[in-house]
Amino acid sequence: MTRRLDRAVGTAAASLLSPFRSSRPQPADPRRILLIQPTAIGDTLIASGLISAIERRYPAAEIVVAHGPSNAAAVKMLEARVRPVQVGFANPARAVAALKALSPDMIVDLTPWPYATALCAHFSAPWSAGFNPQGSRRGRLFDLSVPHRTDRHEIDNLDALSQAIGAGPAREMRISRDASARADLPASDGLVLCHVSAGGARAAAKAWPVENWVALARGLVAQGYQVGFTGVPADAEAVAPILEVAALPADRAFSLCGKLSLAALAELLAEVPLLISVDTGVLHLSAAVSGRAIGLHGPTHAARWGSVSPAALGLDSPHPAGGFVQYGWEDHPQAEEIMPMLTPERVLSAALDKLEAQPRLRANEDA
């Protein structure tokens, strides 16, 4: 369902349904709680603290996470004991049937704006909670709605939702770690990881130019560091031209695309002195393990979507249109002009400042 259709149908449905549904009391002792989180590794990781908070608040309840194919691996990494169920929300009628078959006592919709998921929650459980963006009628579809604000980080919105349903604070990301995933990891000392590819509808706008990655890689290698480019197998196509143009020794700059599971990548991110990444799920995976990172932001602002790790730094493009993305569906005529204004000189300087502040993790000067 397109966003325009989602909004048109959802707004009409909210107006028609809300007069016939009064808010009902939240279940005191739910047997099964269903959480809707259909997309994105990063969004799932940011919501991990809320999911753990719900588990602590309702220890006897079964927690079901309705997810999609793109975030299945992230759901498996949640610290909370959950039952993952893949649901296709592109067809709301089928999604409602799938959710109702699970017999939830309450549903919490973790998505910020789609009417489709709110309608699914409305029709699939005796009680539901979710977000109401400014100027939206979406909140009318829930028994309890929480304002969704674009002037704060998404983890703060999720924290507000967690507090509203009585689950308590949820600002700390909570994932499970797999020590066995450390087997066969590359040596982390002096290794700077770079992640060049974002997912989602705004992937092209979030991309940093090849020539900027080339300049950054050359600058890091000149200072004695190794550079490893991470990604799924398909990301190798984006990394190949960077390595080709940079023309650096193969043991100093190389591709790790397709060579690490998400669990293994988490372990490596916890150990390396630095990750440099566009705004995507890997940046939030680093935050979940308190990793050291620099996030490169253009369409999004770091204050809204950046890493929440205390050891991370977000660099925003100075382009006046920067930060136009609040939810992910927005567009701008200058969208692909924003990231190029974040210069490699600025990123390299910030990277070296962070690396030099970690003497025990610096590369060998003789490398």
Rank of each mutant, 00 (worst) to 15 (best):
R3M: 09
D6H: 03
A8G: 08
V9M: 03
T11Q: 14
A12V: 15
A13V: 12
A14L: 05
A14C: 01
A14G: 00
L16T: 12
L16V: 14
F20L: 12
R21H: 14
S22M: 06
P25T: 12
P25N: 11
A28C: 10
I33F: 07
L35H: 03
I36W: 08
I41N: 11
G42E: 04
D43L: 07
I51P: 01
S52F: 12
S52R: 15
I54T: 13
I54V: 15
A61L: 08
E62T: 15
E62Q: 15
G68I: 05
N71R: 03
A73P: 03
A74N: 01
A74F: 03
E79W: 11
R81I: 12
P84E: 08
P84H: 08
P92R: 07
R94Q: 13
R94W: 11
A98F: 00
A101W: 05
A101H: 06
P104G: 00
M106Q: 14
V108Q: 04
D109V: 02
P112E: 09
P112W: 14
P114M: 10
A116M: 12
L119R: 02
H122G: 01
F123W: 15
P126G: 03
G135M: 00
G139P: 06
L141R: 06
D143W: 01
D143C: 00
H148T: 04
D151S: 01
R152V: 13
S162D: 10
A164I: 06
A170I: 02
A170D: 05
E172P: 02
M173C: 07
R177S: 10
A181P: 05
R182Y: 08
D184V: 08
D184N: 15
P186T: 11
S188A: 15
S188Y: 14
G190C: 09
L191D: 02
L191Y: 04
G199F: 05
G200I: 01
G200L: 01
K206N: 12
A207D: 06
E211W: 05
E211G: 03
A215N: 03
Y225K: 04
Y225Q: 00
V227C: 00
T230P: 07
V232H: 09
A236E: 14
E237K: 15
I242E: 01
E244K: 14
A246I: 00
A246K: 01
A246V: 02
L248A: 00
D251G: 00
A253P: 00
F254E: 05
L260H: 06
L262F: 06
A263Q: 12
V272T: 14
V272W: 09
P273W: 11
D279I: 07
V282W: 05
L283I: 02
H284I: 07
L285K: 01
V289F: 06
G291I: 10
A293N: 08
I294L: 05
G295W: 03
T300E: 09
A303G: 08
A311M: 11
A311V: 05
A311F: 13
A311E: 15
A312Q: 07
L313M: 12
D316N: 15
P318N: 02
A321S: 14
G323K: 07
F324Q: 05
V325Q: 07
V325N: 00
W329I: 10
H332K: 06
I338A: 01
P340T: 13
L342M: 01
T343H: 10
R346V: 14
L348T: 11
L352V: 11
D353F: 03
L355I: 06
A357P: 02
A363V: 08
N364F: 12
E365I: 12
